Structures are given as structure tokens and as C-alpha cells.
Simulated scan of single mutants.
Amino acid sequence: MKVKFGIDVLLANPHPYLHTRIGLVCNQASVTQDGMNTRLALQKAGFKLIKIFGPEHGFDAQGEDGKFIDHQIDQLTQLPIISLYSQQLAPTQEDLSDLDLVIVDLPDIGARFYTYLWTMSYVMESCEKYRKPMLILDRPNPIASSLDMAEGPLLEPSCSSFIGRFPIPINHQCTFAELAQYFKASHYPQLKLEVMPMQYWDRATNTGYHFYPTSPAIQQREVTYVYPGSCLFEGLNINEGRGSDHAFQQFGAPWIDHEQLAIQVARELTDATIEKVAYIPNFGLYENEPCYGLKITPLNQNHFKAVSYFVKLIQIIYQLFPKELKERNYLTNVNPNGSKHLDKLLGLPNAFQKIIHEKVDTSANEWHTTMKPFLLY
């Protein structure tokens, strides 16, 4: 049976909200089951949309990773789009002054450092502070299967940033509505929060819907299964596949001997097929330089533990190329000098040293107990 997203459930019973002045947090990947963008579906159904708030990558979900996104006007609706990845990360009191309700309908890909989650948290913070009610329209987590598949480390508070504010695992296995309920209980107790669960979504099977690209590097669902681990390359002097046709699915660097690496990885890691690759990124790290590395394809996507796999892979790279492998600064709008990016990704201080000395625990054994009161499916 086809999954009904939160927006579809809302459209089936619009009456409590039809005369409400609404601010909508969404992007181009926020769509109904039949593919209509949420903002258009709400307008068509008679909802009173006042403004749109956009996350990182902008409303069109095409902005380059980490780049400042300015405010703009939506050409189809002529509504103002307030960027929450600009000089501000949260709605201001003025932004909310003419609204009766803020609706959040954002896609996710299930990794702690994918920033749409933290945009939601900042919106929750503003809505609590300025006493505006909030409604979360839920969507699938494309890599969810069971909370037993959650992977840490849990974020340590000293590593809190816009790619991880609160102590949750890297692969959290939850939906935004579930996490919103948890955040309300743990951080925003005065927030008036309502959630609109999906219908017919089964966490265990996680089928029955189409995956829409969520950002420039996440164009296919297959990428999401490796992303919670391969994104760690952003904090190292290894190209994470950006500037190629297989961002996050492949990686490389001019100094990697991929013949030697492939032999060692095949010996030690058996949860994915590996393919030796040579490519030239057309932007990003090592732009226009030949890079040599591997393409990683999980054998069983639903049981692939990407974080532990790529932590071990980084350890193998260090064992083979100890003089070449180094940390890298990763410059973004929210981290202009790019410092400690690997710490922020992994959620641990001195992450590089902990990885190469095999002192990273990727288990998240208590997460199921923590989240049990907030699960919807």
C-alpha cells in the first residue's frame, strides 16, 4: 500500500487549519504522495500561506553544500522565502509576528549531520520562545529499518554545532516527528507541538513511496545508505565523491594507491562490494586533479552499518598511508574557518586521533530505550 505522508493526511482533513495564517518550512523535495509540492498543495486546498522558510541548499534544494543562501521570492506563489541558512538560522520574532501556526514539512536522510533536522530544532526553539504553535508533517527516514540499526557515537556536548546540536546517534533511525517529540520533552517543554504521522509507513519494510532528491549530492536513495559513514571524509583530505557522478558512494585522493587499498579492504571488510575508481572532480577538494579510490556498494542496504564500516575503512587508509592522511578544514556558512569539522561530524573531540587509534565506539545501545516513548511506528 502506498504511504501517505503527513501532508497527505493533513490534506484529507484540512478544516481545523483552513483559516490559520501559516508559515511553512519546506523545500522542493517536500511533496505529496503524487508529487505536488507541499506549498502548492496547501494553497490549492485553501490554506492561508503567508510565507515560506527554507533550509540549507535553499528552497530549490540546489544550493551548494555549506553556502550562504539569501532570502528570495517564490516565483510560483509570490510568497517571501526566508532563508534559515543565511545570517539567521532561526525565525525571528518579526518573522513569526503575523503567523498563527508554523508547519514543518522537510525531508530527511537519517544522518545526524544532515542539517534539515537542526533547522527544525531552531524553528522549535523560536516557536517556544515566541509562543507560536507548531505542526510537524512527518516523512519517511529512507534508511530506517529498526532502532537496533542505530549507530553512534552519541554527540558529546563539546562538539555541538549546526551539524549536530543534541546528543543523538549519527544514524538515528527515527523520523522528524519522532525526534521533534523527543526534542520537545528534552529541550522545549513549553512548545505547543502537534505532529501529523504518516499512514501505512512501516519502519521495517520502509517501502511504498518515491524518493525525491533532497540536495545536490543526494540524488538517489542508494546514496543515503552509505552517507552516514562516507560523509566523514569531509573532515579528511579525501574527496568524498563531490564533483563526480557518485558523491558519497565513491571517494579518492591523488595520493591513494587504490590497488593496494582494494586488496586490504577486501580482506578486512565484507559488508559491501568495492570497485576501484579513478576520477577527476570538477569542483571541491582536488578539483581537476586525478583521484584514485573506491566505490562502495552495500550488499544488504537495510543491514549495512555505514558508520562502523567507514571508521574501519579510514583506519585501513591510515595504516597504508600514515604520512598522507590528514584532517581537513571544511568551510561552511556556519563554520567559516572550517575548523574541527571531523569532531563535529563524529560528535567526539579529537576525532581523528580516536579513529586512527581505534578508540571509537559506534554502538548506540541505549538509543532504543531513550526513544521508545516517542516512537510513532
Rank of each mutant, 00 (worst) to 15 (best):
I109Y: 04
I109K: 09
I109D: 05
I109Q: 04
G110H: 12
G110D: 10
G110W: 14
G110K: 14
G110A: 13
G110N: 14
A111I: 14
A111F: 06
A111C: 11
A111T: 15
A111M: 11
A111R: 10
A111P: 02
A111Q: 09
R112H: 02
R112N: 03
R112V: 04
R112K: 12
F113Y: 14
F113A: 13
F113N: 12
F113R: 07
Y114T: 12
Y114D: 09
T115I: 11
T115P: 03
T115V: 13
T115F: 00
T115A: 06
T115D: 07
Y116L: 08
Y116C: 05
Y116W: 04
Y116H: 14
Y116A: 09
Y116S: 05
L117C: 02
L117E: 06
L117H: 12
L117F: 10
W118Y: 15
W118Q: 15
W118C: 14
W118H: 15
W118N: 15
T119P: 00
T119G: 04
T119C: 06
M120P: 00
M120S: 03
M120D: 02
S121Y: 02
S121K: 04
S121A: 06
Y122D: 01
Y122V: 04
Y122H: 12
Y122S: 08
V123F: 00
V123K: 03
V123Q: 05
V123D: 03
V123T: 13
V123Y: 00
V123N: 03
V123M: 01
V123H: 01
M124S: 10
M124F: 01
M124G: 03
E125F: 01
E125Q: 12
E125V: 02
E125N: 07
E125P: 00
E125R: 11
S126F: 06
S126Y: 07
S126M: 10
S126T: 14
S126D: 08
C127H: 08
C127R: 09
C127Y: 07
E128D: 13
E128V: 11
E128C: 06
K129T: 15
K129F: 00
K129I: 07
K129Y: 02
K129V: 08
K129C: 03
K129P: 00
Y130L: 06
Y130D: 04
Y130V: 11
Y130P: 01
Y130C: 02
R131D: 15
R131W: 04
R131I: 10
R131K: 15
R131M: 12
K132E: 01
K132H: 01
P133Q: 07
P133F: 05
P133C: 08
P133K: 11
P133W: 08
P133R: 13
P133M: 10
M134F: 00
M134I: 12
M134N: 06
L135E: 07
L135I: 12
L135D: 06
L135S: 07
L135Y: 04
L135R: 05
I136S: 06
I136N: 07
I136T: 14
I136Y: 02
L137V: 05
L137A: 03
L137G: 05
L137F: 07
L137P: 02
L137Q: 08
D138C: 13
D138A: 15
R139T: 09
R139Y: 02
R139H: 05
R139G: 02
